[in-house]
């Protein structure tokens, strides 16, 4: 079908800023998600310097106080300010999420691209590796990796990256496979591009939009995974402020009525995951030039 828009002359390139503004105007949910994301980033960057209390300082006199003007989110069993702890924890949780996703984005994305583009043995090896990973319940696999390799933040990052590996491989492989024989790939061969250059210079940028969606989805999942590991006592150790640990610590106090200890870190965790899931669509629109009409 011939679209009517083809008749009027296309405008010059919009700049990224006005394009972003347009996307948010078109879909307000994306705007909310970007707002939440900005808040998370700010909290992670400057949180530790601006919080009202030291997140590690205990004050038994002020233990188990409900939310009030002095302690916005209340205090826990050791009298630590929950608001300060929630804000400070965002840095650690975001670091784990960003680092693990960045790792798997590069490794999984490249493996998938190569598998889809070259096929043959590359495809067999990459495919079998990701099948093996998929064969385990993913959270149990992450638990196993951290337990075996040791209880450090680095190992949580690696474990989270490994369980997300098959997701990236599959998306990248499918997308690269479609484009393997596309006209512009043939054209690139004719202009003397090496196979590796075609893969990274021609195909990879075209897969970026869909990979961005994957990134934001797995980002939420990575946060949840990190919190889950600390919740069961693996990974980050108390007294380090971390959302999962805080929920775990607060869980036993819910029955006695001190709900705020688990509630506020839990809600923050939920909002963070929610924000990344919503962010996916907006990110795709932002990086796809075809949306820039």
């Amino acid at each position: 079908m011939s679209l009517a828009t083809a008749t009027d002359a296309p405008p010059a390139r919009d700049n990224l800023f006005s394009h972003a503004r347009h996307i948010m105007a078109e879909n307000p949910v994306t705007g909310i998600a970007f707002g939440l994301f900005a808040l998370l980033v700010v909290a992670a960057l400057i949180g530790p310097y601006v919080v009202p209390y030291d997140p590690l300082a205990s004050d038994t006199a002020a233990a188990l106080q409900p939310p009030s003007a002095t302690h916005w989110f209340g205090t826990d069993q050791l009298g630590r300010d929950i608001f300060s702890r929630v804000v400070v924890a965002s840095r650690l949780d975001m670091t784990i999420a960003v680092a693990s996703v960045a790792l798997v984005f590069v490794v999984g994305g490249f493996a998938g691209l190569a598998a889809g583009y070259f096929g043959g043995w590359t495809d067999q090896i990459v495919g079998r590796v990701s099948d093996t990973i998929m064969a385990f319940p993913l959270f149990v696999l992450a638990m196993g990796i951290v337990a075996a390799m040791g209880n450090t933040v680095t190992n949580i990052i690696i474990a989270t990256a490994i369980i997300n590996f098959p997701l990236y491989v599959r998306v990248a492989r499918a997308e690269a496979n479609i484009r393997r024989e596309a006209g512009f790939v043939q054209a690139a061969r004719l202009t003397g591009n090496s196979e590796l250059r075609i893969l990274l210079g021609q195909i990879a940028p075209n897969i970026l939009p869909i990979m961005m969606v994957q990134v934001s989805l797995t980002m939420g999942y990575a946060i949840l995974n990190a919190a889950g590991l600390s919740f069961i006592g693996l990974g980050v150790r108390p007294p380090t402020p971390e959302w999962g640990i805080m929920v775990a610590e607060g869980a036993s106090f819910i029955i006695s009525g001190e709900w705020w200890i688990a509630f506020f870190p839990g809600v923050t965790l939920m909002l963070a995951v929610f924000c990344f899931n919503l962010l996916g669509d907006g990110l795709r629109d932002l990086v796809d030039p075809q949306r820039r009409t």
């Binding site: 006209g183 512009f184 690139a188 004719l190 075209n206």
Partner: peptide
């Protein structure tokens, strides 16, 4: 060198 049949398909949409 070659001139392709489909001008749309033969240009990388990101370039």
């Amino acid at each position: 060198q070659l001139v392709f049949q489909d001008p749309t398909d033969s240009l990388n949409p990101r370039f």
